[in-house]
C-alpha cells in the first residue's frame, strides 16, 4: 500500500491538482457524453412518438 493515510492519498505527493485534475476531466467528459446520449435519445423518442400520435389522430 503506497499511502499512509487518506490525506496522503489525496495529496498525491504534492501533485494533487494535476492528477485529480486529469481524472476529474476524464470523469467529466465521460459523464457529459453519457448524459448527452441519454438526452438525445429522449428527444428522438419524443419526436417519433409525437409523430405516431399525430398520424393516429389523422387516421
Amino acid at each position: 500500500m503506497n499511502w499512509g493515510s487518506a490525506a496522503e492519498f489525496f495529496a498525491m505527493g504534492g501533485y494533487a491538482d494535476y492528477v485529480w485534475g486529469a481524472y476529474g476531466i476524464t470523469v467529466l467528459v465521460i459523464v457529459a457524453e453519457l448524459l448527452s446520449l441519454a438526452r438525445r435519445k429522449r428527444t428522438c423518442l419524443r419526436r417519433i412518438s409525437r409523430r405516431v400520435t399525430l398520424q393516429e389522430s389523422e387516421r
Binding site: C44, L45, Q55
Partner: peptide, 30 residues
C-alpha cells in the same frame, strides 16, 4: 458501449418513419 448507444440513436433518427420503429420501439420506451 458508448458508440453502440450512439448507433442506436442514429438508427432511431434515421429510421424514424419506419414502421418497425413506430410500432416496436416507441411503445416500449413509453
Amino acid at each position: 458501449a458508448a458508440s453502440l448507444m450512439r448507433l442506436r440513436i442514429i438508427i432511431l433518427e434515421r429510421e424514424a418513419d419506419a414502421d418497425w420503429v413506430q410500432e416496436q420501439i416507441v411503445p416500449i420506451a413509453q
